[in-house]
Simulated scan of single mutants.
Amino acid sequence: MTPQDRQWLSEAQSGSDIAYGRLVASHQAVVRGFLRRMLGGGWADADDVAQDVFVHAWQSLHAVREPERFKSWLIGIAWRRAQDHIRSHQRRARRDQDWLQSLSLPQGVSQEDRMALEQAMQSLAPDARACVALSLSEGWTHAEISASLNLPLGTVKSHLMRGREKLLAALGGVA
Rank of each mutant, 00 (worst) to 15 (best):
residue 1 M to T: 10
residue 5 D to F: 01
residue 5 D to R: 00
residue 9 L to A: 00
residue 10 S to E: 10
residue 11 E to I: 00
residue 12 A to C: 05
residue 12 A to S: 05
residue 13 Q to S: 04
residue 13 Q to H: 03
residue 15 G to N: 00
residue 18 I to Y: 00
residue 20 Y to E: 01
residue 21 G to I: 00
residue 23 L to Y: 00
residue 26 S to R: 12
residue 27 H to E: 09
residue 28 Q to M: 13
residue 29 A to K: 11
residue 30 V to T: 15
residue 31 V to L: 04
residue 32 R to V: 15
residue 32 R to M: 14
residue 33 G to D: 07
residue 33 G to Q: 04
residue 34 F to H: 11
residue 36 R to G: 15
residue 39 L to P: 13
residue 41 G to T: 12
residue 43 W to N: 15
residue 49 V to F: 10
residue 50 A to L: 13
residue 52 D to V: 03
residue 53 V to H: 07
residue 54 F to I: 01
residue 54 F to G: 01
residue 54 F to L: 02
residue 56 H to P: 06
residue 58 W to H: 03
residue 59 Q to D: 07
residue 59 Q to H: 09
residue 59 Q to V: 00
residue 62 H to F: 03
residue 62 H to W: 08
residue 62 H to P: 03
residue 65 R to Q: 12
residue 69 R to A: 07
residue 70 F to E: 01
residue 71 K to G: 05
residue 72 S to P: 06
residue 72 S to R: 09
residue 73 W to R: 02
residue 74 L to G: 02
residue 77 I to N: 03
residue 79 W to Q: 14
residue 80 R to A: 08
residue 82 A to E: 07
residue 85 H to S: 11
residue 85 H to R: 15
residue 86 I to H: 12
residue 88 S to Y: 08
residue 88 S to C: 07
residue 89 H to M: 14
residue 89 H to P: 01
residue 89 H to F: 12
residue 90 Q to S: 12
residue 92 R to H: 10
residue 93 A to K: 08
residue 94 R to M: 12
residue 96 D to N: 09
residue 97 Q to W: 05
residue 101 Q to K: 09
residue 102 S to V: 06
residue 103 L to S: 03
residue 103 L to I: 05
residue 105 L to W: 04
residue 106 P to T: 07
residue 106 P to D: 08
residue 109 V to E: 07
residue 109 V to A: 06
residue 111 Q to L: 15
residue 112 E to I: 09
residue 114 R to S: 12
residue 114 R to W: 13
residue 115 M to N: 11
residue 115 M to W: 13
residue 115 M to H: 12
residue 117 L to V: 02
residue 119 Q to V: 08
residue 120 A to V: 04
residue 121 M to V: 10
residue 122 Q to Y: 08
residue 122 Q to N: 11
residue 125 A to L: 14
residue 126 P to I: 12
residue 127 D to S: 14
residue 128 A to N: 06
residue 132 V to T: 02
residue 132 V to P: 06
residue 134 L to H: 09
residue 134 L to A: 12
residue 136 L to A: 02
residue 136 L to K: 01
residue 137 S to W: 05
residue 139 G to P: 11
residue 139 G to A: 06
residue 140 W to I: 09
residue 140 W to R: 13
residue 143 A to D: 15
residue 144 E to I: 10
residue 147 A to V: 14
residue 147 A to T: 14
residue 152 P to T: 12
residue 152 P to N: 10
residue 153 L to I: 10
residue 153 L to D: 13
residue 154 G to H: 07
residue 154 G to Q: 11
residue 154 G to M: 06
residue 154 G to L: 06
residue 155 T to Y: 03
residue 155 T to C: 05
residue 155 T to E: 03
residue 156 V to Q: 05
residue 156 V to W: 13
residue 160 L to I: 08
residue 163 G to I: 07
residue 163 G to R: 02
residue 165 E to L: 11
residue 165 E to M: 10
residue 166 K to M: 06
residue 167 L to R: 07
residue 169 A to Q: 10
residue 169 A to I: 04
residue 173 G to F: 06
residue 175 A to M: 08
residue 175 A to L: 04
residue 175 A to F: 06
